[in-house]
Design a protein around this nucleic acid. Sequence first.
DNA 1: GATTACACTTAATGTAGGTTAAGAAATGGG
DNA 2: CCCATTTCTTAACCTACATTAAGTGTAATC
Lengths: 191, 191
Amino acid sequence: MDPIIQNISKHITLTPEEEQLFLSKTEIRHYKAKTMLHHAGQVCKESYFVNSGLIRSFNINDNIVEHVLSFACDGWWISDMYSLLSQKPGNLFIEVLEDSEVMVLSKENQDQLYLEIPKLERFFRILIENSLVANQERLMDNLSLTAEERFDKFCKRYPTLLQQVPQKQIASYIGVTPEFFSKMKARMLKK
Amino acid sequence: MDPIIQNISKHITLTPEEEQLFLSKTEIRHYKAKTMLHHAGQVCKESYFVNSGLIRSFNINDNIVEHVLSFACDGWWISDMYSLLSQKPGNLFIEVLEDSEVMVLSKENQDQLYLEIPKLERFFRILIENSLVANQERLMDNLSLTAEERFDKFCKRYPTLLQQVPQKQIASYIGVTPEFFSKMKARMLKK
DNA sequence: GATTACACTTAATGTAGGTTAAGAAATGGG
DNA sequence: CCCATTTCTTAACCTACATTAAGTGTAATC
C-alpha cells in the first residue's frame, strides 16, 4: 500500500475510490539533496509527504544564522504552515537534505479534497493536533531544560535522525551553536 | 449572539439548529480568580472557551519553577491539549487569573459533536492550525531573538494582556526570570 | 489596623552558552 | 585522486541571563 495512504488510514478509513481520488490529487516527485522546495519570501503552494529521504525546514535570522524548525523523514509531512494557510510570504526555507521521494499535495488540491472527502478534515485535524502537542512540548523544553537535557530528549525521540543529520543542524534544532554543541558532546562522552 | 457561536462562525456557518445543539453540549461556569481548572498528573476531560476573564496554562519544573505556556482572554480557547487528546495524565496546570465566565466543552461532548456536526471538524482544524502557526513562530522567536525583542513582540501582539497579567508571568511567558525581566524593563524605559 | 503574603526592585556574583578564530577531519565534485 | 568546500573540534575570551539575597510597596485577610 502507498505509504501516504497507510499514513491516512492510521486515523480515518477511506474507501478504495477515495484512496484513488486522493492519490490522483497528489504527485510523486524525486529530488536531489540540497534542492530548495520553498524559499522565505515566497508564498507556499504545497505540502510534502516524505516517502523516503530527509527534508528540513528552517529560517534565517537577520544575521545569517539558520534555525531548524523541523526535520521530516519517512512518513512525515512538511510545509511552511504559516505561508500555506495564509497564502502570504513566509519566513521558512524548505530544503532536501538527502535524495528524497515525496508526495506533493498542492494547497488547491487539498482544499478540493476537503470538499470531496470531508473525512479528510478529521485526518488533517488529528495530524495537526499531534503537531501542536509536539510543538508545545518542545517550546516548554526550550524554556525549562538545559541544552544537554534537550539533546538527550532529541536522541530518544529521533534516534534515526542522529545518524542522518549533520551535527550542526541538530545543534540548531535544539537551540545552541555548533561550537557549543561540539564542546557539550565531548563533555557528555566523558561521563 | 453568544460569543462562542460568534467565534465559530468566523470559520464555518452553522444553522440555528446546529447552534442550539452545540450550545446544549456546553456548559457555562463562573470561576473565581486562583481556581485551578486542571492539575498536572490528572487526565484532562474538558476544554474552556473564555467568555470573559483571564486564564493561563503552565507547567512546573522539578525545581518549583513555573513556565507559562499560554494565556487565554476573552474569545480564546484553552486546555491541556496533550492530556485531552491522549487521555493520559498531563504536565500542565490551568489556572484562572481573573474571575471568569467560561464555556466548558467536555471531550466526550466534543467527540459527539464531531459526529453530529461534521463541519466542526473543519472549525477545530482551523483553530488548531492557527494555534500551531503561532506556536511555531514563538518557538523560532525563542531560538533567535533576545529577551528584549521577545518582550517587544509580546507587547505588540497582546497589548491588553500587558495591563492584566502580573509582570512575573509575562517574564515566564517570554522565558526569563522575574528579576531579569525587572532589570530589562528598567533598561528599556531609559531609551 | 496590624499581619501576612505576594509582587516588584536592586545589586552582587555566578554560569550556560555565545563569539571569534584557527586548525583538523571529513565529504564531495570533477 | 586531488582540490575545494563544508563540517567538526578546540580554546580563549565574552555576555545575556540566572541565582541569591535583601529591601520596598501594596493588596488581602484576620
